[in-house]
Simulated assay, not measured.
Amino acid sequence: MPELVLWDIDHTLMATRGVGRELWAVAFEQVTGVALREQASVTGSTERVILRETAQMHGLEYDEELFSRFAAALGAVHVQRAAELRERGHALPGAAAVLAAVDERGVRQSVVTGNVRSAAEVKLAVFGLDSYLRMDEGAYGEDGEGRPELVRLALARAGVSPEKAVFLGDTPADVAGGREAGVRVVGVATGKTSAAELRDAGADAVLDGLDDTEQVLTAIRA
């Protein structure tokens, strides 16, 4: 087993079934005073990039102060509507069992996600996944713009070299980011990207889901 397993969150460990976009829209209007008409692509992106591109779509100026206020608002609205997130969203089949199985083997786990940390913590807690993850060793949307940067930061925070870590994610951006950072990447075809597309992107292994714990452990070990 590796020393460190890093997980993407959305569509890898859980699905928010539209709640995430609704909360994003609330936070956007709170900090800009403008109702969200359209949103930049979120697949494989980070909140900083999504906010900057979405602001441009609405003719708004973007700066770090806007991002800081948005990140705080997004975290707060996740806290306020955690019950709704729990009711409408769900952990993906097998996610909790796999996290528990990896934890039982003494392997450290954390996350690499485009979510800001406060929102990520709410999502993971709502679905009972947070107890398996060392959140201080992860990397989040406020930490950088791209997956390679975030993976490298998580490795540095954990004090683990790339060859001793594995990253699991559901998008080509996850695959590319992990590979650029020098870690082994397991693609999980539970999002919008097919297993074939994840293989074509360069994933070292690809899973159709997390429901077969032994299969996931084998992919992580290989």
Results as ranks from 00 to 15, higher is better:
residue 39 Q to V: 13
residue 55 A to G: 03
residue 72 A to D: 15
residue 138 G to E: 08
residue 17 R to F: 11
residue 206 V to Y: 10
residue 188 V to A: 04
residue 145 E to L: 12
residue 184 R to I: 09
residue 6 L to H: 06
residue 187 G to S: 10
residue 189 A to Y: 13
residue 68 S to C: 02
residue 46 T to Q: 11
residue 186 V to E: 07
residue 109 Q to N: 12
residue 131 S to I: 03
residue 148 P to G: 05
residue 111 V to R: 05
residue 127 F to Y: 13
residue 204 D to V: 01
residue 57 M to E: 13
residue 133 L to P: 01
residue 46 T to C: 05
residue 126 V to I: 10
residue 9 I to N: 11
residue 73 A to V: 13
residue 124 L to E: 01
residue 136 D to V: 04
residue 192 K to Q: 07
residue 79 V to P: 00
residue 87 E to L: 08
residue 222 A to G: 15
residue 202 G to T: 10
residue 26 V to M: 09
residue 7 W to H: 04
residue 132 Y to A: 11
residue 206 V to E: 12
residue 76 A to M: 03
residue 87 E to W: 03
residue 140 Y to V: 11
residue 67 F to I: 05
residue 63 D to Y: 06
residue 164 K to D: 15
residue 200 D to Q: 12
residue 17 R to D: 12
residue 151 V to K: 04
residue 202 G to Q: 10
residue 19 V to M: 06
residue 115 N to V: 06
residue 190 T to V: 00
residue 39 Q to D: 05
residue 116 V to Y: 09
residue 140 Y to T: 14
residue 205 A to L: 08
residue 169 G to S: 12
residue 1 M to L: 01
residue 18 G to N: 09
residue 66 L to Y: 08
residue 14 M to Q: 14
residue 182 G to F: 02
residue 65 E to M: 06
residue 174 D to T: 13
residue 171 T to I: 09
residue 118 S to I: 04
residue 93 P to Q: 11
residue 107 V to F: 00
residue 82 A to P: 00
residue 128 G to Q: 10
residue 106 G to F: 04
residue 177 G to Q: 07
residue 94 G to Y: 06
residue 124 L to I: 03
residue 162 P to F: 02
residue 183 V to K: 05
residue 36 L to W: 07
residue 123 K to W: 01
residue 200 D to L: 11
residue 115 N to M: 03
residue 101 A to T: 15
residue 20 G to Q: 07
residue 25 A to K: 08
residue 64 E to A: 07
residue 131 S to G: 12
residue 138 G to I: 09
residue 14 M to V: 15
residue 137 E to W: 02
residue 208 D to S: 13
residue 74 L to C: 10
residue 40 A to L: 04
residue 56 Q to P: 00
residue 222 A to Q: 11
residue 207 L to Q: 14
residue 28 F to P: 15
residue 75 G to I: 07
residue 72 A to Y: 00
residue 24 W to K: 10
residue 26 V to P: 01
residue 72 A to G: 04
residue 12 T to M: 06
residue 181 A to G: 06
residue 119 A to G: 05
residue 49 V to F: 00
residue 142 E to N: 07
residue 3 E to H: 05
residue 33 G to C: 02
residue 151 V to I: 12
residue 51 L to H: 03
residue 22 E to Y: 04
residue 139 A to R: 08
residue 54 T to S: 07
residue 138 G to Y: 06
residue 60 L to C: 10
residue 137 E to R: 00
residue 80 Q to C: 01
residue 136 D to S: 13
residue 213 T to I: 02
residue 82 A to Q: 14
residue 46 T to Y: 06
residue 45 S to T: 13
residue 43 T to I: 11
residue 211 D to E: 15
residue 146 G to V: 14
residue 196 A to D: 15
residue 113 T to M: 01
residue 214 E to M: 09
residue 190 T to C: 01
